[in-house]
Design a protein around this nucleic acid. Structure first.
Lengths: 140, 140
DNA sequence: GAATCAAGTTGTACTCTACAACCAGATGGG
DNA sequence: CCCATCTGGTTGTAGAGTACAACTTGATTC
């Protein structure tokens, strides 16, 4: 096996292990907000207002799934929907103040966890790791 | 925001994005074998025989979850359980020939997918990326 | 204006998972 | 040796997340 193959093998295994643990880890970290809810809120914050169908496309989830996720976020008071002036069928989703606060809180928590986990890495390694991950995810 | 914080931010975001997509991607890649089933089979292959409770500990899953997962793998004929000579309550799980074949097939598929995705990376980058992932996952 | 398309919702069903209750075999102190 | 306790595993139940299909309603197009 070449060095290259060996690296590929390790990358595959480690990413698999990571994916397997991620959901449970996220749930443990903040039981009130699942990984998906968190990602949805974060996307709403970044995009400041988008439609459910945009979320479905962005996250590769069925529109029915998004519909229900959004409904529960709305029930929790984290998101509100406003009519889309251009299309009476559609809504535009916005974070509420409460939603922004919850996102902030969870983000802080996550940031702390990552800082802790990566505390002993030096800045160059962090930068390279970040670059690799970004490059890895960049393709569809 | 320091460079260091920025890298942490990127790492967090990219890992989150990856985790979110992983399950669906794995399901698309091989609909017959979930990420967890795959991981269980792979662990059985590596360890050549282990008990359900070992799997539960290894994968941080509840023993009831393991029990059901193993039951379906057994129904699929991928795994067989043999009595543990040291403890009449316990079983030892082994891959069947069929299970070994299925694992092989999925592994090939995954390997190909990774090779394709990482085909244009040079060997040094792959090695460094692999090293970073391993280091990241290494702590509990 | 009728046919078609797109945005969302709802009914249904399946998988994964956890927790609690339980059973059966193992272990250890009197 | 015997009962109490511990451990490995299974089963009942419940909840989250997801998909697919059918449907409603408004938009688009010919």
């Amino acid at each position: 096996m070449t060095d290259r193959d060996e690296s590929l093998e390790i990358i595959q295994r480690e990413l698999t292990a990571f994916a397997r643990r991620a959901r449970a880890a996220a749930a443990r970290m903040h039981p009130q907000l699942s990984l998906v809810s968190y990602a949805l809120l974060a996307h709403l914050e970044d995009s400041d207002g988008c439609r459910p169908s945009d979320l479905a496309e962005q996250f590769l989830l069925n529109k029915s799934t998004i519909s229900r996720q959004v409904a529960t976020l709305e029930d929790l008071g984290l998101v509100e929907r406003r009519p889309d002036p251009r299309d009476q069928r559609a809504h535009i989703l916005h974070l509420t103040a409460h939603g922004r606060g919850a996102l902030e809180q969870v983000s802080d928590h996550r940031r702390t966890a990552f800082q802790e986990r990566l505390g002993d890495w030096d800045a160059d390694d962090l930068a390279r790791f970040a670059g690799y991950l970004r490059r890895y995810n960049a393709r569809p």
